[in-house]
Amino acid sequence: MIKVDRIHKSFGNVQALRGVSFAAPDGKITGLLGPNGAGKSTIMRVLYTVLRPDKGYASVDGIDVVADSLAARRRIGALPHGAGLYPHLTARENIAYFARLCGVEKGVLDDQVDNIIKLLEIGDFADRRTKGFSQGQRTKVSLARALVHDPQNVILDEPTNGLDVMATRSLRDLILKLKDAGRCVLFSSHVMQEVAALCDDICIIADGVVAIDDSIDGIRERTGCDDLEDAFVAAIHLVAAE
């Protein structure tokens, strides 16, 4: 369960977030949709606590991400945008390193790493050094790394970037599995169709504010557009008009 309440964040003179609020409940996939530079990554970085908000409140499972960032991080598995691996370590070592840092106990560590490798179907290259991995392989390993400690909340920043059709598909299946397991999944993208195919709720962000936050049908209804892409454009124009 993720809650964001009127978060503000500036970098110098640039106001990246101007009072963003939304909620992502457990057992649902929430999509953060918005054009490039809308503030999607910034809000996610606030949630996995590498950025501190200037104003506002955000919580993960009721834990304040500013006051108790360490406890909040324990509840999160994050895949930052363009996350990189350690090229001299094998995929398995990369995953195990993160599992250890997340406090996974020694006795269960190997099992948990094996399970996530099976789940993400990366067994074929799990024991190769990650140098020279394809984008799809890298994303899968990064994802395995983020999920190895079995977090309740999963934050994925543009995970499908640079993935081919097959890889996107298997990623989509995985996200649905997480949803069925009752996880809270927050997922960002600038690709309309992807969000439409996956998400239960969509939060459209433009220019640092939430333009619209509703279910897919709700968004169609409120913008009066049947086509989701038109609805997206209409929502963004709404912000620009203000």
Partner: peptide
Amino acid sequence: RGSLEPLLSLP
């Protein structure tokens, strides 16, 4: 390499 941000998001 982009590995710092995932690392810093760990508990």
